[in-house]
Design a protein around this nucleic acid. Structure first.
Lengths: 258, 258
DNA sequence: CGGCGACTTGAAACGTGTCAATTAGCGTGG
DNA sequence: CCACGCTAATTGACACGTTTCAAGTCGCCG
């Protein structure tokens, strides 16, 4: 079901990981060399010890499928992925986008079963760690426990926010909030660049409009219309897989018009 | 901010807790006497020891407010409550309904800050436990850790399901799923009754239509229309704060039409 | 060159929201 | 006992936001 090779790279399909630094001229934290910087370091030294293997999957391929069983816990090192739930009629809902440094899901720390499909958006590199050993370390190191609970709370707050957005906000708000959320998370990772007096925020943006649609509960057609409107009114600029928030203040207002 | 009395009952405003047994003729688990049966027993003996106090709040009053700080972790003993997020324009989104035995939120185990308002729907009795001691016990007893992770996974799966429902399902599906979810959770607690050949499922149902609206991202007016349609087509019967699913099979089909 | 996927645009259909009027139930106080 | 005010729920007409359907552009790759 999953690779058992320790400290080994498997499935390398491309020499270079997706990197935000190429476009944004920002040096992102290097999740590749420094896995310990990920969300759940029991202690920096310990985590490395539990590493199981490193994997690379191409864009559009799956990292793991729904109901897959794994005794390994995956952490994204490079690239963007999405946690997706698919309904029987083919419609999809993206639960969250996974960025470098993200644990795929905190539930995977406790349970081998994946509750949703995880799909690579760009090429993705991820590492896996043995659940059993991680769990032991967690109980031995109280400070690692705090790191875990932080990840957990974060995941929960994000999910709750999405519930509110889908339940109570318009298409414009949902899309603007999605973009702002991603911008914030990328900024934390040093993967954005700013420029100008009302500092515009620039970032790599590998999402297709259908990803935005799947995340916001809208149709791709409507996403296209809303983004066009955003562009027309000078809020954002999108080109060549990169997005710039031209007027962050006004954009934040359209993201929360109540 | 919160009571500090140990093993003491405060704010008792009524002699009787809301109880499903009066209507459904079922004997529910007694969360009052047996707090240890709640979701997070470190060990049954230990938990009782950490009890801080018992509270009762009337219907429509708040159990805790958003951004409240508590060093106590609340567990519902009797009654129904809702975890709610309020937007600045007054619209509300219910994140989850809390039933007897539910920990209000697993994040409260790790963090004193409440991320949402918790509001009593019926009169609610709840107990609180000291976070600091609970946390210590959690680390000492690995088996309690498993109970906790089960609660966390459950909370997460439920939240993810709600995201899918709000993002991708119609009003009819959302409402039917909400009712079925509640029926399932009540059944686990022995708070439902069945009767007939295609066994109809009966339960107490204290929700107002505006609760359903807030939980499903709809308006009360539309909820009324959908429920009327359900009634007209013989799917459910609602009267006197009690709800009966007359045709569970057909109702499940309307809850998942894809 | 042809085909394919991503995106755009417009017209029409549909689901849900908004507004308004009405009824029923319930507790309070005269 | 009834009148009153309040909240919950119902119903119909209409408005609005989003989806659906369809046609068309553009860039990319075989």
């Amino acid at each position: 079901m999953n690779a058992r090779v320790r400290h080994a790279t498997v499935e390398s399909t491309s020499p270079h990981a997706y990197s935000a630094s190429t476009v944004c001229h920002v040096r992102p934290i290097d999740w590749e060399e420094n896995a310990s910087a990920a969300q759940l370091p029991p202690t920096y030294a310990d985590l490395i010890e539990f590493e199981q293997s490193t994997h690379t999957v191409a864009a559009r391929r799956t990292v793991c499928r729904e109901n897959d069983l794994h005794d390994a816990v995956p952490v994204i090192c490079a690239g963007w992925a999405a946690a997706v739930i698919t309904l029987s009629d083919g419609s999809r809902q993206i639960l969250s986008f996974l960025l470098p440094g993200d644990l795929v899901s905190t539930t995977l720390l406790f349970e081998p079963r994946s509750h949703c499909l995880v799909e690579a958006i760009t090429e993705v590199r991820y590492r896996t760690f043995r659940r059993s050993e991680l769990k032991g370390a967690l109980l031995r190191h109280p400070e690692s426990f705090d790191a875990l609970s932080k990840a957990w709370i974060d995941e929960k707050v994000r999910a709750d926010q999405l519930i509110v957005d889908l339940g109570r906000r318009t298409a414009d708000e949902r899309i603007a909030r999605l973009i702002l959320n991603l911008a914030e998370r990328l900024a934390q990772r040093g993967m954005t660049a700013t420029s100008g007096e009302t500092p515009a925020i620039k970032m790599e943006f590998p999402l297709r409009q259908h990803h935005i649609a799947d995340a916001t509960g809208l149709t791709p057609v409507h996403v296209s219309k809303v983004l066009s409107e955003f562009r027309r009114s000078g809020l954002v600029e999108i080109s060549d897989r990169s997005l710039t928030i031209l007027d962050p203040a006004r954009f934040r207002r359209t993201a929360d018009m109540r």
